[in-house]
Structures are given as C-alpha cells and as structure tokens.
Write a protein that binds this DNA or RNA. Structure first.
Lengths: 218, 218
DNA sequence: TAGATTGTTAATCGATTAACAATC
DNA sequence: TAGATTGTTAATCGATTAACAATC
C-alpha cells in the first residue's frame, strides 16, 4: 500500500515551484522558508502552500517556516526526483534538442542518454552530448540501454506509430509533446504536454482582460 | 458585458482537442460529429464534451451530433482563433525555433513575425522565415510592428529583465516558457508553460502505476 | 510573553458526473 | 416509430479557502 494518495494533481504541479524557491533559499543560506513567503512569491494563498506541502510529509516550525534542506529532500523524495532516471528523445529536431538541453531536467534526475530520428541527416550527430541514432535501431538500443522513459517530439502524424514502437521496445512512460492522443497499454503511462491548450488559455486571458474583467486563472 | 464567463479554464484547455477532431472530420467529409465519438476518441465522458461545447454556443442535433463546419467556427470564434495575431519570439534558441515552426500555430491564427536574441551569432539569421534582431532593438521593432504578443524562451535568469523590456515596449501578452514567476502590470496577461510541472506529473504517474494503482489524471 | 506561523477540521466553491426530458 | 444523442437541472466529488487551536 503506497503512502501517497492517488492524484492530488494540482498540488503535484505546484511542487516544482516550491522546490525552486527552496533551492534559492538554500543558495541564499537561509535555514527556514515560510509558507507565507512562498505564497507571496508565487501569488498563491498561504493556506494552499501549507496544504500542498503537507502531502510531502514535511514538518514546519511555527514562527519560522519549513527547514530548507529537509523541505528540498521531502519534495524531491515525493516526486521521485532523488533518483537518476534515464530517458531517450525521439525526434531530434529543435524541440527535442531544446528539451535535451533544458538545465532543469538534470537537476531533477532526468538524463537524456540518446536521441532518435528518422532523418538520416540527423543520425550520427549529437544533441547536447548524446548520440542520435536511426529510429530503426530503437528497439535494440532501448533494450541495451534499459531505458524506460521516452520523450516524444516527432511530427504528430507519426506519433502513434512511433509510440507503438516505443511500447514494444519496453518503454513504460511517454512524455508526449505531440497533439496525438496516444493509444497505449495500461501499464504504460503517458503525460501529454499540449501547447495548443496553453495557447487557448492565453487567448482567453487576452479576451477577458480586454473585456475589462479581472482573472488570474492559470 | 462579455457574453462568455470568466474562467472555465479546464473546458478551455480541452477545446483545442475538440477542434482538431472536428477538422479531421471535415477533411474526412463528415457533416456531423457526435459528442459521444469525441469522448471516445479523447477518453472523456460524453457529458463532459457536451458541457464543454455548450460554452461556445454551438447547437447540436439529437441523433446526429454537432454540425462540423459550424462547430469549427464556434470553437475558433470562442478562442479568438479566427483572427490573425502577430507575435514575436524572444530567445531564438532551439525552443524558440521549435515554437516558431510549430505548424499548429499558424492554423490558430498565430504568426511569428520576428525573433530577438542577445547572441550576436543568432542576429541576422532567420527562424522559420522570420528575421532575428538584436534584443536591443526590441522597443523600436515592437513599436513599428505593432505586436502585442511575445513568446518568452530566454534563459530563466534573464526572464524578468526581458519581460520588463517587453512591457515597456507595449507588449500586452506574454507566453512564458521560463520558470520565472514574472512580475508585470495588471493590464499584461501571462500564460506560464511550466515544463517542470509536466515532468512532476509524469513522475507521479510512474510512481502510482508502479504501485499497482490506476489513475488517469492529466 | 506576544505574535507569527503551522496544521487540522470544517465550509465553500467550482468542476465533473448523473439523471432524464426533449428531439430528430 | 424506436433509439441515439442533445441539453438542462440536480447531485456528487474534489480542490480551495476559512477558521482557529497549537506552538515555537
């Protein structure tokens, strides 16, 4: 029986921001950071920060706040970010390359160990230090690398085909940056990163703002 | 008084997926598409699709579904995607370049008309057909282009400084791909696209799945 | 000590889902 | 007509917020 509840999605999504502030406090040499301060910084309610942090099991101290180092440890442990995770990037274009170089990922234990691309011109090259292989070698490479996580940045039209290949190669988690709704077996998790829905939110916020209403939904 | 309610954020985020399916139905030559089918395709409840679509004002027909062309029109009108919007990309690295080339954006009326970068090596080049200018020319270029929307893909450490420059140049909407929490005036809208929170979700899903629990939260 | 902050329990709010009549 | 599907109203569920005692 796991000691964490299923879901809490909105809280989980906020944890990385708390983690970042805690790390900044650490660099600054602070021993404690209060939920009040975090809330102020992120434009949230203090009670929400306290509720969110409570799921990690961290214990705060009245009048001081949360001890910085244990807080960092608690968030990282809760998110499983205290262990190294290897991943491949499938689609070594600009997006795949951008993600491979994102400095935050290594900090969170995510290492991109290889790239794959259908374009022969990209094969043999490197994205941020990792080799790019032809997509035909996916199965054997994943097997020998033992990678369980894939970041999918191919054109949407090819997404399902590539996902199917990934699954049969043994991949158990797909971070999907295409707008295809992937069909995968039950034991494979998919996290969709949908740029269009982000742009829909921006469009609606502009519209609401220009209608002279106030709104701060994210 | 606007004819749309403030918020509905989760519904707004789902609309682009409905739009995509409607466009596919159109290409396929279908006259109607049912909420039942959309739900099946996206792994949602039919009642949720109907509720979501009702905010656009579209009227369906019992036994048939929603008329495809009016549905496309209603979603695009609701999201303001039926009008051209010009934007600049600030930070012409891999991520900025990937976003500039994302085919979905033009379809949604979003045109990237210029890029800006602090790196002299990038200046004078092009990202997907648009010129890249030095960041020092931001104010004058934005003024002459009349652009109101900026996509921010600079390193997080520079994000607030650049955002301040954007605001004084007259930008009214910032799509923020950095993890900085931007401080901007009330009349400027910000949409945060937080990769770390997406990765937090993926991490939790893996953890929950491996704990043999089932969960399909997005 | 006084007061800021945590953490718990209860209340509120908003989103999802259920029920079902209307209708093509 | 029969039956699939819409659209509305009500119920449920989960997340946010409020209230407040505990405590350093």
């Amino acid at each position: 029986m796991p000691r964490f509840k299923v879901s809490y999605a909105p809280s989980v999504r906020r944890l990385p921001s708390y983690l970042l502030l805690a790390k900044q406090a650490q660099e600054h040499g602070d021993e404690y950071i209060s939920g009040t301060l975090i809330a102020l910084e992120l434009n949230l309610e203090p009670i929400q920060v306290r509720k969110d942090l409570s799921i990690t099991g961290i214990a705060g101290k009245p009048k001081r706040g949360y001890p910085v180092l244990p807080l960092i440890g608690a968030i990282e442990a809760y998110l499983n970010w205290d262990k190294r995770v290897d991943a491949i990037v499938v689609g070594a274009g600009n997006l795949g390359s951008a993600l491979s170089g994102f400095p935050g990922f290594k900090q969170h234990g995510l290492y991109i160990v290889a790239g794959f691309d259908a374009d022969p011109a990209k094969v043999g090259g490197r994205i941020h230090g990792s080799p790019v292989y032809p997509i035909g070698e996916l199965a054997e490479r994943v097997a020998s690398l033992g990678t369980l996580v894939a970041i999918l940045t191919v054109p949407s039209a090819n997404a399902q085909d590539v996902a199917t290949t990934l699954v049969s190669a043994g991949i158990k988690a797909i971070w999907n940056f295409t707008n295809a709704k992937l069909k995968v077996p039950d034991d494979v998790v998919v996290q969709n990163e949908d740029l269009s829905s982000g742009y829909a939110m921006l469009s609606m916020k502009r519209r609401i703002r220009s209608a002279l209403l106030s709104d701060d939904a994210d």
